[in-house]
Design a protein around this nucleic acid. Structure first.
Lengths: 122, 122
DNA sequence: AACAACCCTACAGTATACTGCAGGGTTTGA
DNA sequence: TCAAACCCTGCAGTATACTGTAGGGTTGTT
């Protein structure tokens, strides 16, 4: 159980951004019920994993709304087993689509490099 | 040589967005010098390819500024051969990084699916 | 000539995702 | 006890990437 600044250090995500993500419903910390003198929020290792996933998902172009679909399927128990699996399968398809686009871009850049190297630049 | 609405149809990108991209310096059309009665802009097949590349790059999370680096290396002749190749090589590294992230995400979602299927959900 | 269907510029407005205060309370170590 | 270093809420501001509208000209068909 860590406080927000510790979570920030472990994930490399600024405190303000963590709060923003939490308000957006991407994960949630807990208030310790035995502590009454403050309203500090604690986070466990689970949240570290989620933030790392969010970082990767953002890096490959998913919006926070799209990422939320996944984390909801990931840990929201009010959805049925099949509903959760359906969401995850849909995301796997999207991941494969992105991989295909990345490969197409690699090919195109390779052609472009070849053209430059041989002074056939468009 | 096509007008903007034709380009929009061929690429699936709205006319407004095409103008926005052109203003951002991602590509440029040409004015026909023999036509003096209007200021219509024409685009050739080259621009179609560039827009398709932009679509893919955006889908995998590149910003327009990052995409611009590539298209500049792609067709700006004022840069040296080596400078252009350097930019493209940097982008190839970034593409591989994104592919690695996508693969990591696929693995994580597969584990999550497995947990749900076996009722070990976190 | 008239009408639809284009073309242009310019600029205001929106959505997403932060980022940075202000203002105020708490914890911890010297 | 006092200061540094945390914690909280709330809200305004910024950057990026569009999206929409106003206002006006051109083209092509009937």
């Amino acid at each position: 159980m860590k406080l927000i600044s510790q979570l920030s250090k472990e994930t490399g995500i600024p405190v303000g951004t963590i709060r923003f993500y939490e308000k957006a419903g991407l994960f949630s910390g807990v208030k310790k019920q035995d502590v009454t003198t403050n309203n500090y929020v604690y986070y466990d290792q689970d949240v570290v994993e989620k933030i790392r996933f969010i970082k990767m998902a953002k890096a490959v172009g998913f919006t926070l709304a799209e990422i939320r679909e996944v984390v909801d399927a990931w840990y929201k128990k009010q959805f049925t087993k099949n509903a959760r699996l359906r969401v995850l399968d849909k995301k796997l398809v999207q991941l494969d689509e992105k991989i295909a686009e990345l490969k197409a871009m690699k090919k195109q850049i390779a052609i472009c490099k070849d053209n430059i190297a041989n002074d056939r630049s468009t």
